[in-house]
Structure formats: C-alpha cells, structure tokens
Write a protein that binds this DNA or RNA. Structure first.
Lengths: 347, 347
DNA sequence: ACGCGTCCCGTAAACGTTTACGATCCTATG
DNA sequence: CATAGGATCGTAAACGTTTACGGGACGCGT
C-alpha cells in the first residue's frame, strides 16, 4: 500500500473524498465513508505523516525532552518512564503521540532543543530539569511552540509550569526533625543550576528561621544527585565539627550512598544521624532503618502535565478551559524510622 | 525564518542552489556555499523535516521502541536510558537522531509498532523484549524497515539481532554453585513469553545435565521480573519441600524482594540460601551480603546495536562492512558473597 | 417552469524540500 | 575561430496530504 492515491483508485473514488472520509469531515456520504474505512483497514493504509504534517503544519506528536548527565545516567531512574503512562493516557484521547527526545550527554541541551524545534518534529514540548535561568524557555516562547516545564524558572514569565513542592518538602522535613529535638540539621542540595535546588534551600532556610535556628552555611552540602553523591555527602557530613544530628536529602537514591558511607564509619543511620529523603522510590525500600520520605504519583503528575500542556495549545485548549497554567505539585510525607529516634538534648 | 524560499530570496540566489549548498552537494561554487551557510546560520534556518522527508522518503530518525508493562513500570530501570548514550554516539556520526517510542501500557505493542511504521516516522527501529515468536519481526521485515532486535526470536529468520548471553550466564551460575557444593539449584524465570527466559532455562537445564544433576521442574519458579516478583519468588522458594540451597535470578532487582522475603522468614541470604543474579545494578550495591552477579556495559551494547542496525541500512552499510548481523553479547561474572558460603554436604 | 438549498463529490492548489535536467558562461584546445 | 567540455546555476517536477472551491444532481416550494 503506497498512498491515498492508490486507495482512491482501488475504490474508484476521488482522492479528496477519500481523505475527507478518513478524517471524519462532513460532505461525505455515510455509505461511502464506510466503504473507504473498510478498504483502508483491509489494505492497511495509514496516512503518511510527512505529507500530512507538511500540509497542515502540525505533526500530532508531543515531545518529552530528557536530560541525563554523564554522572547521573547510571543512577538515573524510572522518573520519565513513570511519567509517560499518565501523559499518554491523556494524549491518546486526542490522537496525539508521545515521543521521548533524549539529549545526548555530550550535546548542549539548548542546542539540542533548538535543533528539534527548528526541524518542526513536534507540536509541543515538555521540558524538565529547569534551570534557575533557562534559555530554553525563551527559545520555545519565541518559536511559539507550546510547552510546559516541569519546574518553574526565573525565566518563566507567564509560561506554563508545574513544580514539585520542594518548599513544602523542606518545611515539613525541618518541622519534623525539630519536633524530634534536632537543632543542627544539614541539607544535601544539588551542585548544578537546577532551580528546584534553590527553592529547596530557601524553604529549608525559612523553616529554620521560623524555629529560631540560625542558618549555618557549613551545613549545606552540594553534591551530585546520585547514589555516588549520597556517598560523598556522607563523607562530608562526617568531617563537619560539631556534627549535625540530622540531614535532609534532595534525592532518595542519595540515601543508599549515604547509608553506605555512614555504616563504613560506624555511624548508624537513624540513630546517630537522622535522615529524611525525597522522593519515595520502590528500590530504596530495602534500606534499614526504613527511610522517611515523600511520596508522589508519577502517573498523576503525567496526567496533570499533559492537561496543562494541552490547555496552552490553541487547538485543544477548549477541552481544558479551567486548567491552571501554573501549579505546585504536592507531596505526601511517608514516615519511616530513619528519623524517629528521639535525641537526648545534647546540651 | 519561514523556509528555504525566504532564505533564497534574501540571498538573491535560486532555491535549488541554496538547497545544494546546504546539503554539501557538488555543482555549487565554494564562495556561494560559504555565503549560504553564513546566512542560514545568521537567520537560524533549519530545513523543515516534513518537507525533506516527503521528498526523500527518509526521516533521518531512528526509533527505539520501549515496552514497559503496568506491573514493571514502577520497578523499571535505567536500561533504555543507559543504552541511548552508546546509540547516539554512533548515530550522531551520520547525523541521525534517536527518539524513544514508549508503547502505552494499555496498547498492544504490535499494533503500536504497526502504527508507527505505517506513519513512516522513523527510518529504522530497534526493538527489545523480543518474544519467543514475535509478530513484530514479520511486520518490520514485510514493511522493509531496517531493524535490529535486542534478543533473538524463533521468528528472527535472517534478520539482525543481538542477544544477551543468557545461556552463558545460566551455565556460569550453575558451574559456580556446583563448585560450591550445591546440588539443588532453583531458578527464577520470567512468567511472560520473552524469549530470553527460554534461553535462560535451556542453559540452566543443560548445565545441570552436564553435572549429572537431574532436572526438577518444581525448582523452576515463574514470576514477574520486578522487586515484587523477587519477593514472590522468595515466598515460593520457602514452600518447596526439601528446600533448594541456591537460586539463580534472571533479574537483579528481584534480589531486593527476595532478600526481603527471606529475612522475614529468618533465612539468611548467602548463608542459608545462595543467590546469583543478573545483571549488575548500581542500586543493588547495598545488598548484604553483596550479590554475585553479571556485568555488562550498557554504553558498549548501545554502540554495538547502532552499528549492527546501520549495517542493515543500505545507505550506511558500507561504513560497517564487516559487522556481524547476529551476536551474543558477553557478560562478566562479578563475584560477591551471596553465594560464597560453602555448604556442608547435606547428605 | 423556475429558483433555491442541500448533499455529495471531483479538481486543483498548496505545504517545503530535493533533484533531474537544461541553460549559460567561461576556458582550453584544436 | 570553432567547438568541446567543465563549472555553476536556474527551472520545474515530484513526494503524499489536506482543503478551498465549484459543480452536478436532486428535492421542494412558489
């Protein structure tokens, strides 16, 4: 089966009518529409995407850009795959397909995105790992490509975003640790320019202030968001004099490395050092003591992302009239035992 | 910047010459080529992919199909993301882009692939999770879409594939366990129709035979390849009367669940029950005792996949003249402690 | 009989690119 | 000088769709 022309000839109908029949347009007899659909099914005809895109200027494809640095690719998790399920459940309703665009580790994400945008291979984009100031946002805005970013940015302007509630996470974590008697609380934040690192630290700082605890910069550890980074964090924690009694991790896989380093040094996690991590991961279930952490549904987040995105696309926005353009995605605290040993007042 | 026409007008050159200049064709003055390239860079012109695809019948995009069932998506790992790095390093040399095509969990993989193929959105495909008999292979062959499958199949015919050496893995594992004195060796295989499960079991069976150990079907446990499945496997292991003294797992994440179930029952992994897993995963590093398992480089596998694929594509095959169409990908044994406690002869 | 509207269908242009072909100019060679 | 041939460029067709437009057939009311 070559194209619509062969299909039309086979049916002895004009090519225009066949197209209208297939696309559910009016001005076509219900009877002939049946014939056309049957023949298409029988001959296995599916419209060539290039031809269609060229004519309509639309691809019916949504892109999910994926970044994974050389350092974290080994530890990188099922985050994006977890998202796809929710995304697709919404996109499928509009006959939109999702493709993932993995940015090569040795290419600049901005340049990569620029290429993809210029080639007009997707109608809209979802980007993540949003930086504090992110050129990609300006790029997409100027190119008038609808998009939503997972993570707000200083560059966001009035574009759409959904951000994980890292402010809330930091606050609950500090509250909980303080309630358990901790006063010296360390925090492991990412070493790159990702914006959620800043939000996380801000929340941490303001929470301390709320509890009348002085902010101590030496308790802020900047490491990679990986198991390796967790190990490194543990290492640095042990060096601090007047060692903190608790630590908050921005990424749960770090807990594995942290536990490892602590255990090596004879420091018992949860007993000698309280630990709270983000986010709940099935594969960290094994940790002893069980990690206190925050839960979120990747599927639901995917659904929300898709709806927010569609709301920004003129052709689909009427389906989602009252969709928020911006939103803070809530996390739920899952109490474990890694922070529940009460401390004797040290002084 | 709209299209090549505007670029041509801006340069006051014909549209054909511009196209030739951009694509490095002959019959264009070196001087004007410079001008064209400069102007394209300045105005940010990039060829529209749809137009190009339509004309040349080629998209310059390679698809990596991703399957993840509802059950395993939570546990699914960085396998595909790990592959992309190697894939892209090769594809980039030929200006080919990689996209990942995640099959929705509620859609039949065959139908999904059929849609993607018919829409002509990629030039070639990489498929994985190959089934014992896999209709996708016939589909791609008939559609004359170059492809390589990760995992051979009974349907493979003379198509290209790379298969992980599960036969070798099963054999080494059995050899090692027998050398440690084990005679009753269980095996946890996947419950679906994925072909590597069969190969794994075959290898296991032949290895037993080689050692003069009778094959006992009750020692074959079929579970999902997830942490949950590992737990289930542990559960079933404990039910077997005349309990086996060792178990081989087809997937390393299963070890986490297995350890959990064993510990619950007071059975010490590595001591009361020897364990060998596939494949090495950074996140299973924490397990105590350390898991004996098999290592492979995802990056290198990606490289090999890309080269094998390109070798099947007429336009690129001359770059890879002596590339094997089929290949067994070797794994390296990483000794841990989970199988190294020597047993007293039980009888 | 005439006009008008509705239903259905065919015709052809347009989307942006690549490429076969032919045209022009210039140089070298006899 | 005539001509061959190389270098460079312009022209136009083609890829597979969608869709604006117009036209024929038919029914209905006047």
């Amino acid at each position: 089966m070559k194209g619509i022309r062969q299909l039309a000839e086979h049916l002895d109908i004009s090519i225009g009518t066949v197209s209208r029949a297939l696309n559910g347009k009016p001005d076509v007899n219900e009877e002939t529409r049946k014939r056309v659909l049957a023949a298409a099914e029988e001959l296995g005809y599916v419209a060539n995407q290039s031809g269609r895109s060229l004519r309509q200027g639309t691809t019916n494809v949504i892109g999910l850009m994926i970044e994974s640095s050389k350092e974290t690719i080994e530890d990188s998790d099922n985050f994006f795959l977890g998202l796809t399920s929710g995304l697709q459940s919404v996109l499928a309703r509009h006959k939109l397909d999702l493709i993932m665009l993995p940015c090569p580790t040795d290419e600049d994400p901005y340049e990569y995105l620029k290429r993809m945008v210029a080639r007009r291979v997707v109608d809209a984009m979802i980007i993540s790992a949003t930086q504090r100031v992110d050129k990609r946002i300006d790029l997409l805005s100027k190119a008038k490509i609808p998009f939503v970013s997972l993570g707000r940015s200083l560059s966001s302007g009035n574009s759409s975003w959904i951000d994980l509630d890292f402010d809330g996470v930091a606050n609950s974590a500090v509250d909980r640790l303080v309630a358990h008697g901790h006063r010296r609380i360390a925090i492991a934040a990412p070493s790159n320019e990702i914006n959620l690192g800043y939000i996380f630290l801000d929340g941490y700082r303001r929470a301390l202030e709320r509890h009348g605890i002085a902010y101590d910069p030496s308790l802020v550890i900047r490491v990679k968001t990986s198991e390796q980074g967790g190990y490194q964090a543990g290492h640095e924690l042990l060096q601090i004099d007047n060692r903190p009694t608790a630590v908050i991790l921005i990424y749960e896989l770090m807990a594995i490395g942290l536990y490892r380093r602590l255990t090596e040094a004879g420091v018992i996690p949860g007993h000698d050092l309280a630990v709270i991590g983000f986010r709940e991961e099935p594969r960290a279930k094994f940790l002893q003591p069980a990690l206190t952490c925050f839960r979120m549904s990747l599927h639901d987040l995917g659904v929300e992302l898709a709806e927010t995105l569609l709301a920004t696309m003129p052709a689909y926005s009427h389906f989602y009239p009252d969709s928020e353009r911006n939103m803070i995605w809530p996390l739920k605290l899952i109490p474990g035992e890694s922070d529940s040993f009460h401390l004797m007042a040290a002084e």
